[in-house]
Amino acid sequence: MICIVYFSGTGHTRMLAQAVAEGAEEVQLIDVEAMGPEDWVALDAAEAIIFGAPTYMGSTAARFDMFLEEAASRWDTGLWADKVAAGFTVAVHPSGDKMNALVRLAVFAAQMGMIWVGQSEIGAPVKPEREGINRDGSWLGLMATDPVSEGDKATARLFGARVAGASARWAAGGCKVAHA
């Protein structure tokens, strides 16, 4: 199972989370503002976790950072080690320092021993027939600009499918490592 854990201040990140979920198919959406004990159980059992947060003032939103700090309690036991991880963000401006938010998520995943999956879709202008796909030209993870376009949603669905495929390959390969 894949869990998509997100914070959405104005609804745009939730919209992306739903599109990523459509691409990944078998997922559990978890809003950090409504988390309960059962959500932590799901995250701990998930084969992959996709993190989503808006970019505020050059990094992930503080409310999402609170979730990351709580999740870090799994670090010393390696509970999330070898899970597939990925991330997405949205901001008002085309740059909006969204790369910093994705770096924040990727570094968190690395510190947890997770396996990061980036974004791979090539759109216009390189492939003019794919107008709107990966319009922000992001490779570390999924980026979108507010307002979230149909191209952003299409890219999010492709991203969800990519993470699901990577998770299935990782799990099928028996690549899980025992941690002390």
Rank of each mutant, 00 (worst) to 15 (best):
W170V: 04
F64M: 13
V20W: 00
L142G: 05
R135K: 14
T60D: 04
M57Y: 12
W139E: 09
R169M: 12
S8V: 08
L102N: 11
I115E: 13
Q111G: 15
M15L: 14
M99N: 08
G58L: 07
R14V: 00
A62T: 09
L102H: 07
V92M: 12
G151Y: 03
G174F: 08
A61W: 06
M57I: 13
S138K: 02
N100I: 02
A180I: 12
R157A: 15
G52S: 09
A91C: 12
L158Y: 02
D76I: 14
A154I: 00
N134I: 10
A178W: 09
P125W: 06
R169C: 03
I4K: 02
D146K: 00
E121T: 15
F51M: 15
V5A: 05
A21D: 05
G9Q: 10
E25W: 01
G23A: 11
F108R: 10
V5E: 00
L158N: 05
G11E: 00
F159M: 08
P125L: 12
R74T: 02
G132F: 05
V5T: 08
K127F: 12
A46P: 02
A46K: 02
Q119E: 15
G160F: 02
E22L: 08
A85W: 08
D152C: 00
V148L: 03
E38C: 07
E121G: 08
